[in-house]
């Protein structure tokens, strides 16, 4: 076997390189100009170094987002890997920011970097947390809204990993439907 002085100090590689983005709402600037790439990482250790270094989601100002996406995919509908896709959306009640938001977002991150969706992990583009006064949201974005086997598998695993009650129903919405909606309601393409 391999023997080296660095044994035990080697970092654990991830399947994918991931990019962490930060969005800060400034109404005086274009949406795209409020989106900032913070950093990229591709090992378990570098993930934790980053996670420990940044603010918890619950400490962000309202209007801010974190987005963790695979390297090369921008966290916007327009990206070619997103435009035919959609998102599993978990909407939190206001009071859950203090009790649940950080735990649920960390669990979402662990699903992504650990490739929790097995053979369907290929379909995952990234995840977003929106910190909002009216209620925070966490979503996993996938690349093909018509891929029902992948989308429903990802949804079931996501709901299970978040520890949501079987009574809670979460919905998957196609970005194309969200982008063209005429009111704040977007129909669910799938639910789990």
């Amino acid at each position: 076997g391999k023997l080296s002085l660095g044994e035990g100090l080697e970092k654990h590689p991830l399947e994918n390189r991931w990019a962490l983005w930060f969005f800060k709402n400034d109404r005086n600037r274009a949406w795209r100009d409020n989106l900032h790439l913070l950093t990229k990482f591709d090992t378990v250790e570098d993930f934790w170094a980053l996670y420990s270094h940044i603010q918890l989601a619950s400490k962000l100002s309202s209007g801010c987002d974190y987005a963790l996406f695979k390297d090369g995919i921008e966290p916007m509908w327009e990206d070619c890997r997103n435009k035919h896709g959609g998102r599993w959306l978990v909407s939190l009640a206001k009071q859950q920011r203090q009790s649940n938001l950080d735990r649920l977002w960390l669990e979402t991150l662990l699903c992504l970097v650990g490739e929790a969706f097995e053979e369907y992990s290929e379909e995952v583009c990234g995840a977003v947390v929106n910190v909002r006064t009216k209620g925070d949201k966490i979503a996993i974005w996938t690349s093909e809204a018509e891929n029902q086997p992948a989308v429903t598998f990802i949804g079931r695993v996501f709901k299970d990993r978040l520890g949501l009650s079987p009574k809670v129903v979460i919905g998957y919405q196609a970005h194309a439907d969200t982008a063209t909606k005429s009111n704040s309601f977007t129909k669910n393409k799938f639910v789990v």
């Binding site: 934790w48 662990l110 053979e119």
Partner: peptide, 18 residues
């Protein structure tokens, strides 16, 4: 090919290792 999968227990242990 093979996919590198880590379960949550392993990932959390890595957080706490020096």
């Amino acid at each position: 090919g093979t996919r590198i999968i880590y379960d949550r227990k392993f990932l959390l242990e890595c957080k706490n290792s020096p």
